[in-house]
Design a protein around this nucleic acid. Sequence first.
RNA 1: GGUUGGUUGGCCGAGUGGCUAGGCUCAGGUCUGCAAAACCUGCUACAGCGGUUCGAAUCCGCUACCAACCUCCA
Length: 497
Amino acid sequence: MSNELSLYNSLNRRKEVFEPLHAGHVGLYVCGPTVYSDVHLGNCRTFTSFDIIYRYLMHKGYKVRYVRNITDVGHLTDEGEDKMSKGARLAKLEPMEVAQRYTVGFHNMMQAFNNLPPNIEPRATGHIIEQIEMVQQILANGLAYEVNGSVYFDVEAFNKKHDNNYGKLSGRKIDELMAESRELKSQSDKKHPSDFAIWMKATDDHILRWNSPWGEGFPGWHLECSAMSTKYLGEEFDIHGGGNDLKFPHHENEIAQNAGSCGCGGARYWLHTNMLLMNGRKMSKSDGNTITPQQLFTGESPHVTDSYSPMVLRFFMLQTHYRSTMDLTDDALQAAKKGYSRLMEAWANLQGLEGKGGAQNGTVGKELETILADAYGEMDDDFNTPKALAKVFELVSRINALKGGQLSLNEVSPATMTAVKSSLKTLLFDVFGLKEESADAGAEGETLSKVMDLVLDLRAQARAEKNWGMSDKMRDGLKDAGIVVKDGKDGTEWTVG
RNA sequence: GGUUGGUUGGCCGAGUGGCUAGGCUCAGGUCUGCAAAACCUGCUACAGCGGUUCGAAUCCGCUACCAACCUCCA
């Protein structure tokens, strides 16, 4: 397999070989959450997908600057009220208290999913000056106009100047948008329905407000990403990511703002993750078709019959490509739970294996090497985690067969076995970002472990005396306690769960 | 109505022209005191119709259905 990384660029709807702007470095911007309520599972999927992309880029040897913003101002509700303000009003809190509460919650959830923190996590409210400056630039370029203290981006003027580029990301035509666009009260000042606010005049009761050359107001809800990506990654940078639902209008407007302010390209590669569905429909905060991560962790929801840990969910996400929709069902989660545990057991089994072949590999050793190389190769093909994982499971069968004696360790050289351990470790834990979730960790686990040694020792005695009644009674009792006993060739093993 | 993408076996989910995806489930087998696990084998697939081709799940066309976006959303 080639070592070239190719990725699907939404801008051209094609896979392209990735070439960074500056050799060895990657600038990655991902649209982060709006922190006005608890993070939901769809966000988790998107940010986990980009976490794996981030991890893989680093694994490829790139020095990555990963920027993911926190939106704490600017998005309006249907009623025209700022979401942060509304959240604050309902909870009788300062907007910044609302933002803080849900930012902390968001971070905790990212940690639960074992997502690495970005290198920079800028807040929209911390970059008001940059946003005002961008508005000024766009005005100076004649691509925006001020009406009653608000500033609107002039899409028609932009299209004249920039080769009808508005809509190139989402395939939309401005004429069609005009025909279908619905008029909102707050947009009545616009010259064209496609125009969008880059600065909004604050009404008297609006809490979040800043001084600007156009009076008190707040930035438009697409501007933050343009301003902050430019500030931290430059006027042109490598990769911009986000959920599919942001493609239009958010990303389309971002592109227009970048081009409209500095005349430069912004991101060169646009990556979009697909939606998480439940019951075949988009999981969405606004229409209530949703299940919280917490509910999945505990199993307390009418939608599931069991609890699913963060790593089971991460494994579940790995089984679907980031560009495909993922339908959450209890059956699929059950399958993921079992698959994840099989994978982790094989990983544990591998630790006890030593290659016993000569320096020259036998067939099995060669297969192990090929399979792993293929797995990495799949990651080079637009981060194809499902295929990479499929390869890993081919490895799982080999590992278990080597352990069970169906395949011979004489066919594997010691060097190969060492390499396989190291390489699989990197793939599972550094790239996929999985981690072992042993229920028997810590001091309690140590106690349990000692107790189990004793219990299994007693049971081994009973078995040696062919006292099957006692032996089975112990096994059944342990099973009731949630401990599964497995009699193997080389003694008895046990697992929790 | 417009834009974008999708329709694969019992469930989930890869796959872009010929070669076993993979996970889970189910059936049979090996191993085991039995069981579990593990390993081996097997099962029902490519929405429909037409076309291109020596050959199509994979390319083209039409039809049907689904989803996302077009209004805040990852």
